[in-house]
Design a protein around this nucleic acid. Structure first.
Lengths: 346, 346
DNA sequence: CTGAAAGCGCTTACAG
DNA sequence: CTGAAAGCGCTTACAG
């Protein structure tokens, strides 16, 4: 029934005694209209429960009110947290979100993005890592002139606006906490080598040690790839060292959870014999025992900001933007839980 | 550039020497066209890299090629697994997915669904549990006459086509496995009372005991709500019983993971002193130690089937469908892992 | 089996 | 500040 009676601009125009054009102007908030007629139109629209027809709008040449989200990130919890934030912001702004999981094949990925642009005609695009660092995708997007925002990108920082947090600083701080708690033999499991954040977190870790005059032998640093499985292997390696570490800083929570599991299965108590800290604060961090001390990454906030940036139109014509305004850094929090004991408080 | 040169139906028509109408017929696969002209049109379309303009299509009164997915399910991994399957199927069928997290307030939820229908003009809708059991939403949807498919619904089974698995049978079988392994004192943590699957799993559990002539005192059954936290509390209660259970069947994996954590923190070894089994096979099931024996629910397959049902048009006019064809049941698997030992093999 | 006409609901450009 | 005209790219319904 709602569908059958749906009001059109023409109805609103007749109802308020002005032309369709004036109604259109009022509703899209464009051009000058006198306050009086504006009120007239607005109340008529409300009375008729007018909702614009997006298809007609789009066809006539304006915005589609669709935004696209493309990802190939394997972490389900990362993606869903992001999705939640993005959806919330879209709703607030009157936009809808078209989601696409691109797969890992570069060719297919570019195809599905151009599909999204041509067929869905999105007004803007959000690229999640590690997809957002693919030069070919960036190039294709620039050519299409569709505005896009990248999340935690690692390269081509002048190519588009982007949102990130200070991974380096967070890693520095969480490592320093471990040091302040008396740990000097701290192991590190590096994240996916294809993601820039892995390097930043590793660097923050190293610098925290250095600034505390700790010399760590290289065998205490092991390469992982952000998966639970890689965390298992890496931890086994660390704990088999002649002098095993008393603490492990894993590059993300999945690997930290694995570190805890592996320690348990080797009869090593966490946190008594081994402190473990992670990164991200995904749901898993509070679904294992003991719960994981970690860095809370503001994933949902990143999503909301990304939508707002796209909607604002500030980056509509990227060639007119100064790359100085591209960088948006959000704050993090360190959350202390049971997987690392706080000796100083005991 | 792709956007600038985009071919229209008119171009394809001129290129192949037929009318626009014929091109339209060929491309939408509707009406009779001679094989010869069909080939002509098809090759012209390909040559020109023609892609239909969805907005124009929609405006002219045909399908929107958008499908909607609405959820309020709190389990991030459930939703993302579903999303993955849905996205894959959409891509295969040339559709796009508009996702909406509805929130828990019924009023807002109905609003956002009607928004989705009116503004986005989706051709069909998928409802995830527990949202899919809200009578008011079902009523609103029926009135709008938009086809919709529900996932694991609990009531109004004649209201729409739906997809589910045999939760009862799966619970029966996984419980019987525990019994066959020598457990007679098996505790159960019931899931969210608002979800039908909780009751079905509970019922399967009870009947497995009964069919094995086991009388279980009622205190071995505790109410949870599918969250990790509720699993913690429920397990504490079960393990404090004068004679604690030797096994726990949790209504889902989140609660099973909590059962393992709680047992650990009470110095009770899993699976030696306590076997734990869950339900769903979400990522968490393999991210804790020991990994959880569980029922693998075919979430992604459910999503794919839902999309296919919507696209097929079989349920386009629901008033013409026989409710006998509504029910679609998918198979499950029981996956044995380390959280429950297999005594018979030792 | 094929085509000419009209129209979907909106916005762009052009006038005043 | 306001409006009449034309058109976006497609499909529906009507002819033949």
């Amino acid at each position: 029934m709602a569908l059958a009676k749906r009001a059109r601009i023409k109805d609103v125009a007749e109802h308020s005694g002005v032309s369709m054009m004036t109604v259109s102007r009022v509703l899209s908030n464009v051009g000058k209209v006198s306050d009086k007629t504006r009120q007239l139109v607005l109340s008529a629209a409300q009375q008729l429960n007018y909702r614009p027809n997006v298809a007609a709008r789009r066809l006539a040449g304006s915005k589609s009110f669709f935004l696209g989200l493309v990802y190939n990130n394997p972490s389900a919890s990362y993606v869903s947290q992001f999705l939640l934030g993005a959806l919330k912001a879209c709703r607030a702004q009157g936009y809808h979100l078209v989601v696409d999981e691109s797969g890992d094949e570069l060719e297919k990925c570019i195809n599905s993005i151009s599909e999204l642009i041509e067929v869905t005609q999105v007004d803007g695009l959000i690229l999640l890592p590690p997809l957002c660092d693919e030069p070919k995708i960036i190039a294709a997007l620039q050519e299409s002139s569709v505005p896009f925002v990248r999340i935690s990108p690692d390269n081509n920082l002048n190519a588009s606006p982007y949102i990130c947090m200070d991974d380096y600083q967070a890693a520095f701080e969480i490592t320093e906490r471990l040091i302040n708690q008396g740990h000097s033999l701290v192991g590190h499991i590096i994240g996916d080598p294809n993601q820039g954040v892995s390097r930043l977190r590793y660097q923050g870790f190293l610098d925290a040690l250095r600034s505390n005059q700790i010399n760590l032998p290289p065998e205490y640093i092991v390469q992982g790839n952000f998966t639970y499985k890689s965390g298992l292997t890496a931890t086994a390696q660390l704990l088999s060292l002649p002098v095993p570490p008393t603490a492990i800083f894993a590059g993300n929570d999945d690997m930290a959870a694995a570190a805890i599991s592996k320690a348990h299965s080797m009869q090593i108590d966490v946190p008594e014999k081994l402190a473990v800290v992670g990164f991200d604060d995904i749901q898993l961090a509070t679904s294992v025992w003991p719960q994981i001390t970690t860095v809370k990454q503001p994933i949902a906030e990143m999503a909301e900001l990304a939508i707002e940036m796209l909607v604002s139109g500030k980056f509509a014509d990227i060639t007119k933007c100064s790359p100085q305004n591209f960088r948006h850094v959000l704050d993090f929090n360190i959350i202390e839980r049971e997987s690392s004991s706080r000796d100083e408080n005991k």
